[in-house]
Structure formats: C-alpha cells, structure tokens
C-alpha cells in the first residue's frame, strides 16, 4: 500500500481487467485530444487574422461528406468501446458457485464482516489470495458503499435489500476499504482494511481466531428461537413450505410469476411475507420486520442456504 503516489496497482483479477479497459480508453482519449488540439492550434496559427495562408471556397466535398464522415466514425468508435467494455462486464457478472461467502453489515459508521467460519471483524476483512470472494451485504440504516480501490470493486449497501458482488484478490497485502456513498457525519471515517493473505496464512489465521459457531449453525438456533421452525419444520402441522432444498430453486408464485429463491427473495419473505406468496400456500406468515436484526437475518439466510442442498 502506498509505495507510489502515482499509481495504485490492481490487486484483483477483475481489477487488472478494469485497468486494461482504462488504458485502452485513455489511449483513445489521448488520440482524440491530440487531434483536436493539433487542429485547433494549426488552424488558429495558419488562419490568424491577416495571415498569408490561402483561403478560398471550401470544396463542396468538405461540407457534407466530412460531417457525415465524422459522425459515423464517432458513432462507430463509441459503439465499439461500448461493446468491448460491456462484454468484459458481462463475462464477470456471475460469481463462481464455490466463492467464499462473506457477509457484510454496514451501519453508521462501520463495516461488520463475518467469515463463513463465523469469525467476525469490524472494519477489517481477512481474505485468502487467489480465491473468489462473494460479498452478501445489507445496511442497518442508510445507504453505504463498499469500495476497495485496489480491487477496482464497489457496490452500494442498501437498507432493506441484499446486494451482492464478487472479486478474486490476486495479490497479498493490506488494502484500503472505503465507504463510497455519503452516509452522514463520519462518512470519511467509515474506512477499513482488507488484508489478503496467502492461503496457508489465512488457514492459520482462521484457526487462531476465537471460534464462534459458523453462521449456518447460529442461524439454525435462531430458526428455532424465533419460532420459524414452528411452521416450517417438516413435522409441523401448519401448511407452510418446507425450507430444505429451497435455496436456489425456481418458485412459482400465487400471481403466476416465478422467482428464484435467492437471498433477496428469502429476506423479503421474512420481512414482508405477503409480497410474494408461493403458489399453493395461504398468506398466513406474520412479518418479522423489527423482530430480527440485520445480523440475525444474515444468520437465518446462511442457515436456509445451508439446508438448500438437502432434498426435502
């Protein structure tokens, strides 16, 4: 961190791609700028008032063809850039299924992170190098944004909605984490560190942390404590969906549409159960808005995710 004040090397696979695109665009911009400046200066000098340069009728060709020519050229250039950068963007849209899942809860003015092993950190996040990392994020209050400049990664963290993003760190070291969306008084102090370690160091670090239960296990306890199991357990007499094997499945809704049971859907179903009702079930579930905190939601989600692979 901070070896050079003139450049920040990218420290993730995606970041290196962004840099390539950036330099491509920089080259295009430099060429356009130079052309415009050279033309401006040449014309300004050559055709200054009273100079001897030849003037005369503009060739007719100069008027229409030139206009059409550079309109078309600009349009093609811009469309080409659009196509190039967007295809790069789409390629990296979906995270690999085995990505390390990190939960982030943001609040004024800190980031709370939780590893799959249950280790919790505040304003810090330890990661293994060369491993895809998927962030599952929610905010407890206002909009925040998770920005790691060295990874060229940024994603807003919204209240009332799960947002996700992913990257693959490929350099070890310590990197800045900033909150990028203005969030109030101490916005500029809502910063942290991302510590990327070699895989061996990461394993050692994880082993050295006080062992909390992992998220899924904590969620399983909550699932009972908050009363979810009263209806959703397989043995329950209430007509409610069994949640084993649910995660990631396509669910038909009462209104005829189909949703994927992802983090967003499950979260919404806990907080606003009457919004998207699964077909064939009566809308009887009460809202858990205000009953479960953001962090508890994270645990419940992890639990439901963990039983997603079981067959019901």
């Amino acid at each position: 961190m901070g070896e050079s004040i003139f450049w920040l090397p990218a420290a993730s696979e995606q970041g290196e791609q962004v840099d390539h695109l950036f330099f491509l665009l920089l080259a295009v911009s430099a060429i356009v700028t130079i052309v415009v400046f050279v033309l401006l200066v040449t014309f300004a000098v050559r055709y200054r008032h009273g100079s001897k340069a030849k003037r005369g009728k503009l060739p007719n060709l100069m008027r229409r063809e030139l206009e059409i020519g550079w309109t078309a050229a600009t349009a093609f250039l811009f469309l080409f850039i659009f196509w190039w950068v967007s295809s790069a963007q789409l390629e990296g849209y979906s995270p690999p299924p085995d990505a390390l899942e990190i939960h982030v809860t943001a609040k004024q003015w800190m980031f709370k992170t939780q590893q799959p092993s249950g280790v919790r950190e505040i304003n810090e996040l330890h990661l293994p190098v060369d491993t895809p990392v998927r962030l599952v994020m929610a905010s407890e209050d206002v909009i925040h944004s998770f920005w790691v400049p060295a990874f060229r990664f940024k994603r807003d963290i919204l209240p009332g909605r799960v947002t996700q993003g992913w990257f693959t760190p490929d350099k070890t070291g310590t990197f800045h984490l900033f909150c990028a969306e203005f969030c109030g008084t101490n916005h500029s102090e809502m910063t942290g560190r991302i510590i990327v370690m070699s895989q061996a160091d990461y394993a050692e670090w994880t082993a050295g942390q006080p062992q909390g239960d992992d998220l899924g296990k904590e969620g399983a306890k909550l699932f009972v404590a908050k009363g979810c199991s009263g209806c959703h357990a397989p043995s329950s007499k209430v007509h409610a969906p069994n949640l084993a094997g649910l995660f990631g499945r396509k669910i038909p809704l009462a209104d005829g549409s189909i949703v994927t049971a992802d983090e967003r859907y499950i979260r919404d179903s806990i907080l606003q159960p009457r919004r998207e009702i699964a077909a064939g079930y009566p809308p009887i579930m009460p809202s858990f808005q205000g009953v479960v905190s953001e962090e508890d939601l994270t645990r419940l989600l992890a639990y439901i995710r963990s039983i997603g692979k079981e067959t019901p």
Binding site: G15, S29, V32, T33, F78, I81, V85, S145, R155
Partner: peptide, 29 residues
C-alpha cells in the same frame, strides 16, 4: 477556445464513466 479544450477533456472523461466496469470503480470518487 479554452471552452473547446476543457469540454473535450470533460466529454472524453465521460466515456470512462459511461463504461460499466470503469464506472463501478470511479463512481463517487
């Protein structure tokens, strides 16, 4: 003339912010 120079720079930097992957990095910066 100053306007043309500055607007050209400003406009070209707009191409960076219109590009999805680059905008993700530079937005709010």
């Amino acid at each position: 003339l100053g306007f043309i120079g500055l607007f050209t720079t400003g406009g070209l930097s707009g191409l960076f912010t219109a590009s999805l992957p680059i905008d993700v990095h530079v937005t709010d910066s």
